[in-house]
Design a protein around this nucleic acid. Sequence first.
DNA 1: GTCTATATAAAGATAGAC
DNA 2: GTCTATCTTTATATAGAC
Lengths: 197, 197
Amino acid sequence: MLVDEVGLSSDSRERVLNAAEELFVKRGYEAVIIKDIAKAAGIHHASLYHHVPGGKPSLYVEVMTRHLQRYQAGMHAAIQQPQENLESQLQSVGAWVIAHTPVNVIRLHNSDLTAIKAEAADIISNLAFEATLFPIVTVLEAAQQRGEIQHESLGYMAGSLFASLEAIHAIPDQYLDLSRQSIANQIIEVFIRGLKA
Amino acid sequence: MLVDEVGLSSDSRERVLNAAEELFVKRGYEAVIIKDIAKAAGIHHASLYHHVPGGKPSLYVEVMTRHLQRYQAGMHAAIQQPQENLESQLQSVGAWVIAHTPVNVIRLHNSDLTAIKAEAADIISNLAFEATLFPIVTVLEAAQQRGEIQHESLGYMAGSLFASLEAIHAIPDQYLDLSRQSIANQIIEVFIRGLKA
DNA sequence: GTCTATATAAAGATAGAC
DNA sequence: GTCTATCTTTATATAGAC
């Protein structure tokens, strides 16, 4: 397969990265141990260091960078679809957000990023902004230019909406009497039109 | 002081609990180590076990229970103030939320509570609901009965608002050109009236 | 590339002097 | 109640056989 010559990774390295991504994103840096990742990837934890010589910190940085870049690409695609009005664009954003494990930026800043080197933390922090808030702000500003909405602080409003959508993940299944997508759509509707009768 | 006879705690025990509360709430269970708590309380980490024989898990449960009970009491007081309309009631809620470290229920369920015994986790999980969503649902239902608002799924909307308000904590100081309370008030306004021009 | 065995380091916890 | 010293457990990481 000449993987080295074309710069591709081996199969198990990919499994390690996927397992690490899922666990780190879900539980955060400290709550994940190397053995869990290796087990999920189907190898012995000692073998993991063959694929990721830098160990846990470097694995975290690689995997979170990749995760946020993909997240950003997905958000971009969601808002790029040829939809005319704000509501349908935000519904696409909602679909993307509920289809993925929450980014949880509060945890990211309060614990995860304090455990790694400052430069890496800065990069991930900026990526998180680019992947989450920035696309939503773009959509809101365009809608404002079309005269669909009117607000002075669209950045804060974008953050508010994103936080609401991510929180849908926290609803336990037993309390769900609508699909998560329907809940997202209701949140978006209230965001645009308000709760007022 | 006869502290034993009246069931009161010693001074340093209280310092330990306060330090533990602040750290656990901010960083989560795994990211906090016993030495950090002891250091913040001004004692050697070995001395901590004198005050909390159950060690880290039991300390976490005690401190989170206390935290959420107080949080609930504060939310209750906020909504009980003699304010007639929904907006001013929610502004009091917003003031309480931004004055306290986020409860972060997503992290609570995805990592913190998986590290402790299931029964304790259930109790904390229920307390978190009572302390955060329940008071907001109560306020929204009352407003609906007065005819101020109209929505089918007030529970989900309460969750949405609470998540938005907690997320205000995640805004770095350098990006703040309004006070957090002002941002909370704007979020509440949009929640009630919408972004629409 | 993967394992077994082992080393190192960090965290939780206990014993016992003061 | 608090400390020093020590023990145990757990997690990260390395060495070297296969």
